[in-house]
């Protein structure tokens, strides 16, 4: 059996659910939308696992995630929104060790998230897949159905735009 074939839906949910949720949150800036999307992706994975062809599981999974996100945006016919301050407060309490660190990381994280949401979709997706999720260029190319050269260009331009926005 190829190494990249997942054993079960439950295993996929356990090992990738958190990543899918983080991907969705960084693209939308909205925890409710991110939770909805994570559930939608896991449903699609459940239905698709039976017909999954051995290859790049990461590419397959993230293509499903990406398509689910784009379907959701089309369905709602609106642009992804920014998180409200209280929503960011909720997340800040999850993993920061001290109140000072909470405030510092919250402000920084909030600025970065806002800058991220200001990027055009293709560039936002590319830098989130690369720098938040940790996918390789090949995996991003598979997920986004574009050549690796396009991935390289999007990541570069996305980072430059983000840097400008953070100035």
């Amino acid at each position: 059996m190829p190494e990249d074939v997942p054993l079960s839906w439950e295993e996929v949910a356990r090992t990738h659910g958190r990543k899918i949720y983080n991907f969705a949150y960084r693209l939308t800036g909205n925890p409710d939308d991110a939770a909805d999307l994570a559930q939608e992706v896991l449903l699609r994975v459940r239905r698709g696992l039976a017909s999954y062809q051995p290859g790049s599981f990461e590419g397959w999974l993230w293509r499903i995630t990406r398509n689910a996100f784009l379907d959701d945006v089309r369905r709602k016919n609106r642009r992804p929104t920014s998180a409200l301050p209280d929503e960011l407060d909720r997340f800040a309490a999850i993993s920061t060790p001290s109140p000072d660190d909470v405030l510092a990381s919250l402000r920084l994280g909030e600025d970065i998230q806002k800058a991220l949401l200001g990027l055009p979709y293709d560039f936002r997706e590319a830098v989130v897949m690369c720098d938040v999720i940790g996918l390789s260029y090949d995996e991003i190319a598979l997920a986004s159905a574009v050549p690796v050269g396009t991935v390289r260009s999007r990541i570069h331009r996305g980072r430059k735009m983000l840097r400008e926005a953070l100035l």
Partner: peptide
């Protein structure tokens, strides 16, 4: 240096836990 800063900023974002009850 600018690219490195942008990459580090993204990597510094906290990894969020799944909402309670999702799985």
């Amino acid at each position: 240096a600018d690219l490195h800063l942008a990459r580090s900023a993204l990597r510094s974002l906290p990894v969020l836990d799944l909402p309670a009850g999702l799985l």
